[in-house]
Structure formats: C-alpha cells, structure tokens
C-alpha cells in the first residue's frame, strides 16, 4: 500500500466513526470536509486530478451549505446524550469496521479484481458506516450527512470502474441537491424563524 491512499483510508475510518458517534454539527461538518479530502485522494488514483477535484469541490460545497445554514439558524444540539448511547454507537461502528475489513478482500477478489484493495476498503467503509449512521439517527441534517457519505463511498469505487464527464456532472448535481434538501430541512425545522406561507390559502 502506498502511504497516501493508506492515510486517506485511515482518515475515512476516523471521520466516519466521528460522524457516527457524535451529534454536534460542527464536529460532523469538519469530519465530512476531511472525509472529502480523503475521497479525493482515492478518486485521484483512478481519475486525472482535474476530474477528481470536482468531487472535492462539490463535497466541500455541500458541507459548507449545510454548515453555514446551521450557523445562520443558530442550530443547537437539543439531545442530552448519555455516555451509554455514545458507547453503543462506538461499539456498533467498531463492529461495522471489523465486518468491512473481513469482507473487503473477498469482494475485491470476486467482483472488483481491477481495483486496489484500499479503494474497495475505503468505499465499503463509507458505505457501511453511512448505513450504520442512517440506522442510528433521525435528525434530517445527519441523514443528509450520511447520504453524502454513502454516495462518496460509492463514487470512490465507481471512479475506478468508469470515467465519464456526464456522470461526474450528474453526480455533482445529486450531491448538491442532497445538500440543498438538508438546508431545506434545517431551515424548515427551525422554530425561531418565521416563514412566508408556502401553501396556498383556503378559500
């Protein structure tokens, strides 16, 4: 394994674990931004830097959109999390990491023989941890973070399989669309803001 992909993989494991365990949007946004750097490094193994950097920029834009909305809305964490729930999610994350470590070599051998193991491992790690994140939260912004992680994991693997400008463009639209949906839910759920009526009045 080269040092840079390995480092990217370690960053992915740590950041996805952080998003799974913690509920503070500041920590999670920082973790997601770091995760996109790691994804970029891994996508760059398969794609030229000009195309790979699109993933990084789009990812950062998506993260920034959600983070800035949280700042704008003065989003506060309302849940009083017990250490038991943090511990539970931590253990669940470790189990997921273990399962992915066990499964990745077989999957790489049988389905993605043309990809490096580190790419398969990183992609699956993001996919698996995103599933775990989705299973342990109901907050809209965290759901969107998890879906962004999920797509990021898929993109790492898919980049090694296919290269297409249209696909990159459409995936960028989907990622930004997801971020906009996240922004929409954050704004919608903020009781402090008064919104103009979006539904048409009764007659």
């Amino acid at each position: 394994m080269d040092a840079l992909p390995t480092l990217a993989f370690i960053v992915i494991v740590i950041t996805s674990m952080v998003i799974l365990v913690f509920r503070d949007w500041r920590i999670n946004a920082a973790a997601l931004a770091l995760q996109y750097i790691a994804s970029f490094l891994l996508v760059n193994l398969s794609w030229p830097i000009g195309m790979a950097v699109v993933k990084l920029i789009v990812g950062w834009m998506a993260t920034a959109a959600i983070a800035l909305t949280c700042i704008r809305q003065n989003k506060v964490e309302t849940s009083d999390e017990s250490s038991a729930s943090l511990f539970f999610r931590g253990v669940a994350g470790l189990v997921a990491i273990l399962v992915i470590f066990v499964l990745s070599p077989t999957l790489q051998e049988q389905i993605f023989p043309e990809l490096d193991l580190v790419i398969v491992q990183s992609g699956l790690m993001l996919l698996g941890m995103a599933l775990m994140q989705l299973g342990t939260n109901t907050d809209p912004y965290l759901t969107i973070f998890s879906l962004l992680s999920f797509l990021s994991g898929f993109e790492i693997i898919h980049a090694g399989l296919e290269r297409s400008t249209l696909l990159t463009g459409l995936l960028a639209i989907v990622n930004l669309g997801l971020a906009l949906v996240g922004v929409y839910f954050i704004v919608k759920n903020n009781p402090k803001e008064a919104f103009p009526a979006q539904e048409e009045p009764g007659k």
């Binding site: 995936l171 639209i173 989907v174 949906v181 929409y184 919608k188 103009p196 539904e199």
Partner: peptide, 18 residues
C-alpha cells in the same frame, strides 16, 4: 441520476414549510 434528481426535486412539494 436523473431519477434521483427528480426525487430530490419532489422533496419541497412533499414537505412544504409549515
């Protein structure tokens, strides 16, 4: 990807403000 974009576009009408 276009279907996914259509799904994303449907969110505001499914869940309007208020």
């Amino acid at each position: 990807l276009l279907i996914q974009t259509a799904v994303l576009a449907s969110i505001p009408m499914l869940s309007p403000f208020s």
